[in-house]
Nucleic acid binder design. Structure first.
Lengths: 123, 123
DNA sequence: CAGGATCCCAAATGATACTG
DNA sequence: CAGTATCATTTGGGATCCTG
């Protein structure tokens, strides 16, 4: 947490071009992992349910197909955002939940909501 | 600023499903506007240069074509993130800069950088 | 200088049917 | 219940050439 620069330091360093010394844009990698029509919606479902089953996601996300939901979940799992736990009971089911890495998206989502709250209605 | 809930209130309300009462995921709209291969990189260029010309973007963003750059800039302009100012001199040029709405992305980008700083090296 | 017009390819999305 | 397999369609990305 405190081992990263403050927001004010960040703004100052951006203006001096310091934060670009890493070579590439530091914003792009995460947003690339969140691209696709369904990923943000899936992650937001996970914000509400601590743990959620495939069928619940399927029902909540209107219009999503099995294929799309499966693909998105696989990629989110591979990128380390979510856990997949399989229960081999009868009937079988699967539960998805955030990893710590996924939970750490919360501050990002919060700032996005703040932005949305401020700008939703002035287009 | 202060007319939006705090981060702690937000976390509590998320858990109670309150923040979803708007119907849809509040994270998706902004991230949809930032999708595409080049938009985040263009916006980050604008974080560094206060104002930047088409040709500079073209040079900095390796591999981008005129078509892609033009399309991305047009969409960013239509979504209200950037201004486009045309100078009809000889030779003519165009300058792009952040709108206030675009500058308000800074806190979002800052949180994304914090996330990246914490998680870049643990995949 | 900063693009517009056209065409082509690859990737993302989606519909449908089937299964451990 | 939670997928997989297959195929069709749509969208995004890009190469190339041209222009006010």
């Amino acid at each position: 947490m405190s081992d990263f620069m403050s927001y004010d330091e960040y703004l100052r360093d951006v203006k001096q071009g310091i934060v670009t010394d890493r070579g590439n844009c530091p914003v792009t990698p995460l947003l690339r992992m969140l691209q696709g029509k369904w990923k943000t919606q899936i992650l937001y479902e996970l914000c509400i349910y601590d743990t959620v089953r495939f069928g619940v996601l399927k029902k909540d996300l209107e219009g999503i197909t099995n294929t799309m939901l499966t693909n998105a979940l696989r990629e989110l799992e591979q990128d380390g955002f979510i856990n997949r736990v399989q229960f081999n009971e009868i009937p079988p089911h699967v539960e998805y939940s955030f990893t710590e890495k996924g939970k750490d998206l919360m501050p990002v989502f919060y700032e996005i909501m703040r932005w949305g709250f401020k700008h939703d209605n002035d287009m």
